[in-house]
Design a protein around this nucleic acid. Structure first.
Lengths: 154, 154
DNA sequence: AGCGTATCATTCGTGTACAAACAAATTTGA
DNA sequence: TCAAATTTGTTTGTACACGAATGATACGCT
């Protein structure tokens, strides 16, 4: 019934000419892996979204920085990091101050509340990573992370 | 200067107690890998977004289906697939018809235009996958896809 | 037949993501 | 030195992504 449309031809001699199976494409599987991870994250850390957590964790790591710089550190563009910071700011988890010498800049840093929240959450976050990687053996995990990093960095 | 805040303690004897390096967490690297893939996709296929492409490709593969069912096939929830289909419908790439026996359902199928578009784009999509995987050797690619699939499926 | 449950589509609200266009401030370089 | 290029932050518009709620319809079971 469905044979008439969408038949994908595979050549006899090994390599396929135009065989395309969506569910075998990297992008598609990558999206699904991400979905699974997000679900695990949400089930353990309902207080923050992953991008919000990433921003706080990075601030905790590097201290005060400008908005854009923080964005680069957590791989978000200017428009995206702004939204994330706005929401953190609205919850008083971060503090914004003007930069002394450069009047374009806005320096972001953790509030006391933000610091104590991230300190509470860090152990949970490690468990999120563990649970995400649970389907793999330790050996596979090491291999996977190495290859994934290679892929992410191009 | 930043040493006072955010210091992460690592125990002497090997395993870290609460060391947390954001850039080593699966979720973070997964997000970056996704970003790189999306950029590659956009540079080669500017006509459609990846979700739109996935929906069309799946329709091409399986023929007419209900909205929700298509959503399941491409791993999108009901609200998401609806938006995607709305946009495809607005460009006349898909056709919507009521289902005969079940008046709740809306049957989606490719329009002629949609079919010819997806046929044109399929070879490009294979190259998107190739370029995404280019940082890995063929051997690494095979390993990576196997592990990624394991991870995505839990 | 009828009642509870499940499914399908839709809507609303929130939160990423990114391109593009912009203003203000700073840096560069001729 | 002073105009050009760059950086920083902001806004707008489009497109996912998902939880939760809703209404209509279908189905299972007694």
């Amino acid at each position: 019934m469905t044979a008439k449309q969408g038949r994908l031809r595979v050549l006899a001699g090994g390599k396929s000419a135009d065989a395309y199976d969506l569910s075998e494409q990297v992008g598609f599987i990558l999206r699904k892996a991400n979905q699974r991870h997000l679900a695990i994250f949400a089930s353990r850390i309902s207080d923050l979204t992953p991008p919000q957590f990433a921003a706080l964790a990075k601030l905790y790591e590097v201290g005060a920085t400008s908005q854009n710089q923080l964005g680069q550190l957590v791989a978000m563009d200017a428009a995206t990091i702004k939204g994330v910071i706005d929401r953190l700011k609205a919850r008083d988890l971060v503090v914004l101050e003007p930069h002394g010498r450069d009047r374009r800049r806005l320096v972001v840093s953790l509030s006391d509340e933000g610091r104590s929240l991230i300190e509470t959450l860090l152990p949970e976050a490690l468990e999120v990573s563990e649970e995400t990687l649970a389907p793999l053996t330790p050996r596979e995990t090491a291999t996977f992370l190495r290859l994934l990093t290679k892929l992410a960095e191009g």
